[in-house]
Structures are given as C-alpha cells and as structure tokens.
Design a binder for these strands. Sequence first.
DNA 1: CCTACCATACTTGTATGGTAGTGTGGTAGC
DNA 2: GCTACCACACTACCATACAAGTATGGTAGG
Lengths: 232, 232
Amino acid sequence: MYTNGRAQEPSARETVYAKLKEQILNLELAPGTALSEKESSLVLGVSRTPVRESFVRLAQEGLVQVLPQRGTFVSLIDPALVEEARFMREHLERAVVRLASAHFPAEQLHALEDNLALQLKSIERADDRRLFELDEAYHRILFEGCGKLNTWRAIGQMNVHLNRSRMLRLVADRHWEHLHEQHEAIYQAVKAGDADRAERVMQEHLQLGVRDLAQLMDKYPQYFISGGDGKP
Amino acid sequence: MYTNGRAQEPSARETVYAKLKEQILNLELAPGTALSEKESSLVLGVSRTPVRESFVRLAQEGLVQVLPQRGTFVSLIDPALVEEARFMREHLERAVVRLASAHFPAEQLHALEDNLALQLKSIERADDRRLFELDEAYHRILFEGCGKLNTWRAIGQMNVHLNRSRMLRLVADRHWEHLHEQHEAIYQAVKAGDADRAERVMQEHLQLGVRDLAQLMDKYPQYFISGGDGKP
DNA sequence: CCTACCATACTTGTATGGTAGTGTGGTAGC
DNA sequence: GCTACCACACTACCATACAAGTATGGTAGG
C-alpha cells in the first residue's frame, strides 16, 4: 500500500546535518572553529551517532575536516575552490541560458517573474539574507526549466564554498546594485530567445562575485587557507 | 613534531567505503541489489558502524538508496543523471581544453604522452578495465594541468553514474576503436595550441559514450529507473 | 631557569545492545 | 478455497560502552 505520504518526521541525523550546514554557511560557525562530536551531541540533544554521521557527510562536502583522534574543524575557505566554483558556474550557466533561450517552459518563466518581483521587495527592505536565497532560487529555476536540475545540484556541492565567501562579503559590505538588473536582463534575453545576449550577461553576472576575493582574504586572513596546509 | 607522514593505515570505514563503491561501479553489485548493514558487516569482517557510515556516504553520492526500516539498495541507473553527467563534462571539458591549448605545463604534457602509450598497450592486450582507468586518468590530467583538479573531482560525483552505464555497455559490447585516436588528436591540438580543434574533438569525443543508452535500457530494463519511482 | 617525562583529559574510531517500523508467511475463522 | 489477522524475522535508527591516539599542563630532575 501507499504508505509513502512522505509525511515522515525527519530523522535526527537529517536535522543535525541541516542545522550544522546552515550554521557553517551562515558563518555562525566560522572557518577554523573546532567542533566535537560530544559537544554537538549535547547541544543538539542527541547521541553522538547522528552527529558523527552528519560529520561524515559534511566532510565529504568539504565543509568540515576530520583529523582522527585530534578533532573536527570547520574547513577554512579555499580560494581555489571558490574560483573553480565560479568557473563551473560560468561555463554551465552559459550553456543553460543558451538552452533556455531556445526553449523555456511557461511555468518556469512565470516563476522567474515572481522571483524577480520578490527580489525587488527584498531590496526595498534591505533584507540581504532573503535576497541571497532568491538569488539561489533564480538560478535554480533556470536549470529546472532546461531539465538540468541534477546539474544544479552537482554545482551545489562546489557552490557552498563560493557562497561562504559571498556571505563573508555580505558581512563586510553590501552592494547588490547590479544584481537585480542583471537578473532582469537575463530574463528578458531568455524570453526574447536571444541566446547570445543571455550568455553574455550571464558571463558578466557570474564574474561579479569573486572580483574582490583578495580583499576579503586580506581582511579575514584567519578564515582562509594560507600555505600548503588545510587540504591534503 | 611531524607525525604526519601520511603512512597511516586506512580506517575500516575507508576500506569498506572503497570496497563497496568499487563493487557498485563494476556492477558486481548490480543496480537494485539489496544490501544490509548486518550482512555487509559480516562479509567484510567489521562491525555495523563503519558499514553504516559508508552507506551514508554512498547515499549522498546517489549510489545507494536508504529506505528507513526497510532496507538499503544499490541505486538504479537514472538516465537523466547519465545525460546530465555528459552535459557537464561536455561543457567543462571544452572549456578546459581551450585553457590547455593556451598554456599547459610540460609535466602534465609528458603525463599525457605516457598515458597514451599505456592506452595502446592496453588495447593490444584487450584489457578493457585498464583502458577504462587510463581513460579516466587522461581526462584528469587535462584538468590537473589547468589547475582545475577540484572541478574534475566535482564532475566525479556525477561521473559515477555515467561510468556505470559505460561499464554496462562494456559488458554488452566492446568497441574502443575511436577512443585512442581521439585522445591522440586532443593531445596534438593542445600541444599545437589549436584551441578550436581541441574543443571540437573533445565535443565529439564526449558524445560517443551515451549514444546507445536507449539500447542498454532496452537490454537491461531492470537496471534502470522506469517511472516516477526510484528518486524522490 | 630549562628540559624531559608522565598522568590526565580530551579527541575520534569501533563494537554492540535496544527500539521502532516494515514485509511476509502461516494460521484461524468464515 | 478465500480472507483477515497476527507472530516473527528483518530492517535501519539511535544510544552507549569501550578502545586507541593526541595535546597539554604539571612536575621531577638537571
């Protein structure tokens, strides 16, 4: 029988994993912070087992680093990962907007419109976090409309590193001026079927994020990998 | 002191994970096969804990599917994942060979030469598995020479699904004719700095693999996702 | 004062027992 | 013969105990 109503309460492992990941991405758990299975289990009110399994998942994503018998630490931001995340997004999203310009379902086109409207409201309210989420959702919709949602998910695993540096930049200084207008321009180009223009704007759009990575590394050196250490 | 000679014996979790992953990729554990923490722990001679943690990792990669209180199963092959893996590789590797054509270190260039020589020997011996590994290594070297090794690793997580279908194809029918000559052509183009030609050959190269995916799905329907089931 | 050593309090790694949910085969009742 | 029910075997999930390695601070000896 269909017991799969998907109304199951999430497992302890899932909640712990989501909580830790959110805190790491929000920089509430700063890069370099020492974690511990026992401490996290006490804080979150579960045993070590689900915490440990969450650490395994986070370690696989490169968000934490487990040193056997020594400790678990929130990974330092690796500039190479940040740049390569940008690289991946640039080339894959350029390809995707070309696809989108050729054919894009009405449903996702409307979703883009709604998203753009919400972006404007978030900018009015100066709600950075919300705008950040909407930005993510916007790009996700583009992939979804092209039937490339799995590709977006694969990007996601690199994207977390890019997002952490973007979040750091958000703390230092907020300038979302061009963001909405670029999103708008991409939307217009896709709608008009102008693949060349869509690709060009997307390329510019994805070069904004890491322009001043060096400044961030200078301002928050303790959050970044310096020498040969950090990732073996 | 420097006790980090990296000469540590691998943990039980690592060996279990590697073993299971290899067996899944080799199709020794066929898609749909039922696994179990207890059984695997008995077979591999460890307790349930490292097995369980390996399942967590494999589940995150999409290689197994864990149904709570019901069982753990080797994931069926998802044609959408296979196609999107090809999509990612096509666009990222085209970008990479363009970079490589502009500048490529001598060390990696020699590594490509060695690799090509070994490919020839594997073809002579009709050693498919070995040629498969060399093919993977060849592309990895291209990324490495461009300083995009993390990108290759990110592709890897999608690539496993592509490779599983390629392995299935290997079982059915072996035709590696064009593989080596395409690799050779890419090498020549990179060495000559001809970005356009390198990109073009790479594009053709990466369209070979999934040409007859439909045939495989027809021949081994039990290994593939059919309807809306499989991945929620 | 400086150094070498060692007890101790951490850390993660592994093993195991108990719990709750799920599928299945047998059986009682119709 | 057919159906409904129930006991049982099986699963993954979680908690806990033990093992083994590591960093550290205090102390004895020079």
